[in-house]
């Protein structure tokens, strides 16, 4: 969870639609399993086998309202699956908080699903929220993560901060 934050992100794109909920990302059966086994269950109900196809550093591009649903640590599963970044037309606020707190880079970028098709490569300057599809030459400016929140992400998530203050073990 403490890997160094990288501002320049590039990787292969996977595309999913609107309203992807946390039951799809972290199904209840997986919630009881050890943390390292949970990522294998991502999208098992709506895209069986997909979690095995994801490679380290891949990028997830999603439609509106990504992460609607429960407070469960679904963002942690996406990070541990190896995904380098989430780009979405819009993101549920609770999921967004969890993404920051688990140090999983996530950007809101209205229109991003129109920029990519699956298998494309995405290039992202995270702090500037600048997104590019080098194959098509198209670029898009997303919504930059506010500085206070970016600081949590860059610190490796909120547990790292609390641990450095001796507030948790």
């Amino acid at each position: 969870m403490n890997d160094l934050f990288n501002d320049q992100i590039s990787g292969r794109v996977w595309v999913v639609g609107d309203d992807i909920n946390t039951d799809l990302i972290l199904p209840i059966q997986a919630y009881y399993l050890p943390v390292e086994q949970q990522p294998a269950w991502v999208f098992s109900a709506n895209r069986p086998g997909w979690s095995g196809d994801v490679g380290q550093g891949d990028i997830l591009v999603a439609g509106r309202n990504f992460g609607v649903g429960s407070s469960r640590p679904a963002a942690r599963s996406l990070k541990n699956l190896g995904l380098a970044c989430l780009l979405a037309d819009s993101i549920n606020g609770l999921f967004y908080r969890n993404a920051i707190n688990f140090a999983f880079p996530a950007l809101e970028a209205p229109g991003v699903t129109a920029l990519f098709k699956e298998g494309d490569r995405a290039e992202i300057s995270f702090e500037a929220a600048r997104i590019a599809n080098p194959a098509s030459g198209k670029t898009l400016d997303g919504v930059p993560m506010p500085a206070q929140l970016l600081a949590i992400l860059q610190a490796g998530g909120i547990y790292s901060l609390l641990q450095s203050e001796n507030l948790i073990r």
Binding site: S71, R97, N98, Q148, I158, Y159, L167
Partner: peptide, 23 residues
């Protein structure tokens, strides 16, 4: 009143504060 994840709760319980993005 809002739902947050376990990490935010841990922070709030330890420090008595939290952040919000005003929408």
């Amino acid at each position: 009143a809002r739902g947050v994840g376990a990490p935010d709760m841990t922070y709030a319980v330890a420090k008595g504060e939290t952040w919000f993005r005003v929408g």
